[in-house]
Design a protein around this nucleic acid. Structure first.
Length: 445
RNA sequence: GCGGAGUUGGUGAAGUGGUUAACACACUGGUUUGUGGCACCAGCAUUCAAGGGUUCGAUUCCCUUACUCCGCCCCA
């Protein structure tokens, strides 16, 4: 048997419906903020990610899917979304558009060659968005708030925003030196990973889990203390705007992010949900004011956010959030003889074109088995096509939940279905948010 | 890249160095010559992830590989 590749998943059936629903919510929220969707290629020149994401990051050094195509080009499957979006921004000269800033969002698969575990896949899906062309702290606050609002609308409760500022280039370098100075004398007390980090990326020592409780860690200098005045004012404004929007957050100096391109505002969104695996950061982002210039565009400030779609689905599942997905059908047509089957074919086609979800039997099953199938599909109505009835130009239609049966003339069938489909009570149940088609009074589901 | 635990039918699983691999659910058919969901009856893994080894004999022991799950690194 040929099986799927390691770290990949098949999404189908009920899960696919949930995915579709969640994607739609994300789309709708982002469109309220006037973001428009961008679709960029799955693969790009390897160089884009090396320069964009950062030559020294783990993502680039050990997690990319690199290959050469038949023309000898060096290709990489995208490990994240921002680099490709920025490439497109530059290549399509969006900086010249009349309307600024540029707001783009995406929801697409990413590829990282990693050992799979809970909440970690090789083919993962991320949604994210980028606000390019504004350095206003309002942009920072808004980007954070969008993420929080998406999670809120989906019904997630256990989420937490951890916020920090890395400051501008100057602040960041000063801070880096201060960290090295602080940790160097104590290097023997640190774990082996941290010993490496000291040279490579000292900021990452801060979120080490092994050394977390040690004294040196607690006494470590904080990014915020090394912000120059300008960066400090900026950070204060971001916080102010967040408060205006009613977004709760916590300043966490340990949030430094693993991608090289960040400066100023960085943030992570954590899912504090019982039963969630070790990978409880479901989203993160920050400002990347230098990246566009680094990739050959004009110097342009930007900020963005990216979130794990798969991890979001896990979070929704762990919090037992019932998504309003419709997994029943409107009508099942049962038949036995060939004339009835022909009529089923005709009627199914006709009613589908008129907007109903109609199923019939494809497996030459007995009547009993067809009823079972109708049950499994949670059909709201069933019609047993009967030659005698058809001669009279009528059918017997049964409401599955009330068990009531009506004789309806074929001409009136569409009208009958329209009238009775949602008649008795809100089909959606109390947890539904389907928003439309519900005739249960003024209640908007 | 490193570490731990697994892999038995469509599903949940029990089991043992020896000739029919429990049990349950699901499924299919029948009891009911065309009106279900209940009940009863019958059927449903020559096979225990793949390959190799030990053995008279392996699904059971050993090795390798693949995959899954969990963790580290890192990240979403």
């Amino acid at each position: 048997m040929i099986t799927k590749q390691k770290g990949c998943v098949d999404i189908y059936g009920k899960d696919a419906k949930k995915w579709k629903y969640v994607s739609r919510v994300i789309d709708e929220v982002l469109e309220k903020y006037n973001y428009s969707e961008i679709r960029v290629p799955v693969f790009e020149a390897s160089e884009l990610f090396h320069r964009g994401v950062g030559e020294t990051t783990d993502i680039v050094t050990k997690e990319t899917y690199d290959f050469q195509d038949r023309g000898g080009r060096n290709i990489t499957l995208r490990p994240e979304g921002t680099a490709g979006v920025v490439r497109s921004y530059i290549e399509n000269k969006m900086y010249g558009d009349a309307s600024q800033p540029i707001k783009l969002y995406y929801n697409m698969p990413m590829y990282r060659y990693e050992r799979p575990q809970a909440g970690r896949l090789r083919e993962l899906t991320q949604f994210g968005y980028e606000l390019i062309g504004s350095d206003d702290p309002l942009a920072d606050a808004e980007v954070i708030s969008i993420a929080v609002n998406i999670y809120k609308i989906l019904g997630l409760k256990g989420i937490k925003v951890n916020l920090n500022s890395l400051g501008d280039k100057e602040s960041r370098e000063q801070y880096r030196d201060a960290l090295i100075k602080h940790f160097k004398p104590h290097i023997k007390d640190l774990c082996s990973d941290c010993k490496e980090r000291l040279e490579k990326n000292p900021l990452r020592i801060l979120d080490c889990k092994v050394d977390a409780d040690k004294d040196i860690m607690k006494k470590a200098p904080k990014t915020i203390d090394y912000l120059n005045e300008e960066s400090q004012i900026r950070f204060t404004k971001v916080k102010e705007y967040l408060e205006l929007m009613g977004i709760e957050y916590e300043v966490d100096p340990k949030v430094v992010r693993g991608l090289d391109y960040y400066n100023h505002t960085v943030f992570e969104i954590e899912a504090n949900i019982e039963g969630f695996g070790a990978q409880n950061v479901i989203g993160g982002g920050g400002r990347y004011n230098n990246m566009i210039e680094n990739l050959g565009g004009p110097s342009t400030p930007a900020i963005g956010f990216a979130a794990g779609f798969d991890r979001l689905m896990i979070a929704l599942d762990k919090e037992n959030i019932k998504l309003p997905i419709n997994d029943n059908i409107d009508l099942f047509l049962l038949y036995v003889n060939d004339d009835e089957k022909k009529y089923a074919v005709y009627l199914a086609n006709d009613l589908r074109m008129k907007g109903f979800i109609v199923e019939t039997d494809y497996l030459s099953r007995g009547l009993k088995a067809q009823f079972k199938q109708a049950d499994r599909l949670k059909s709201k109505f069933t019609i047993v096509l009967n030659s005698d009835d058809l001669k009279q130009n009528e059918v017997k239609i049964k409401n599955t939940s009330t068990k009531e049966e009506d004789v309806v003339s074929l001409d009136a069938l569409v009208y009958y279905l329209d009238e009775n489909m949602y008649e008795d009570e809100c089909e959606c149940g109390e947890d539904c948010h389907c928003g439309d088609n519900c005739k249960c009074g003024d209640k908007k589901c």
